[in-house]
């Protein structure tokens, strides 16, 4: 099975751990972590990524700027990006989608939703025959 690399960009260690734990349940997936947009860009430059999960509000470079940077990078512009937002931050979410984010999930995040979203975007079976 082809190895997929997923990058989780999240400044909150709790959210980051939650996303990483959920994504590690998908077989054939390696999960990388970054705590802000700048660190994420370094990882994107060095790794061949299949998917990015990113928070919107982060110190340094926020999620919206990160989406813009990824979409303007010829090498990485095709990577699907999932934004992790709060329902109240609808404007941020709409801006992220307008900038080129592929999908979004809202907090509080459920592990199953993270796995489903990742599998859908990576076109993987979640291994659940009745789904």
């Amino acid at each position: 099975m082809a190895e997929h690399k997923i990058l989780v960009v999240e400044d909150s260690s709790i959210m980051r751990q939650l996303l990483v734990m959920a994504l590690r349940r998908i077989s054939g997936v390696t999960v990388l972590e970054a705590s802000d947009g700048l660190e994420a860009l370094k990882t994107i430059a060095n790794e061949d990524l299949s998917l990015v999960f990113s928070d919107v509000n982060m110190p340094g470079m926020d999620g919206l700027k990160l989406v813009r940077m990824i979409r303007s990078d010829k090498r990485a512009c095709e990577i699907p990006i999932v934004m992790v937002t709060t329902e109240g931050a609808k404007e941020d979410r709409d801006r992220a989608l307008a900038l080129g984010a592929t999908a979004y999930i809202t907090k509080p995040v459920q592990g199953a939703e993270v796995v489903d979203t990742a599998c859908r975007l990576l076109e993987l079976s979640a291994g659940i025959p009745w789904n």
Partner: peptide, 21 residues
């Protein structure tokens, strides 16, 4: 049962993360 186990798993993950952090 899968859904229940998945919910339980999610709960345990949340509790583990909360305690760990």
């Amino acid at each position: 049962r899968y859904v229940e186990i998945e919910a339980e798993n999610s709960s345990l993950a949340n509790l583990y993360i909360a305690t760990y952090q």
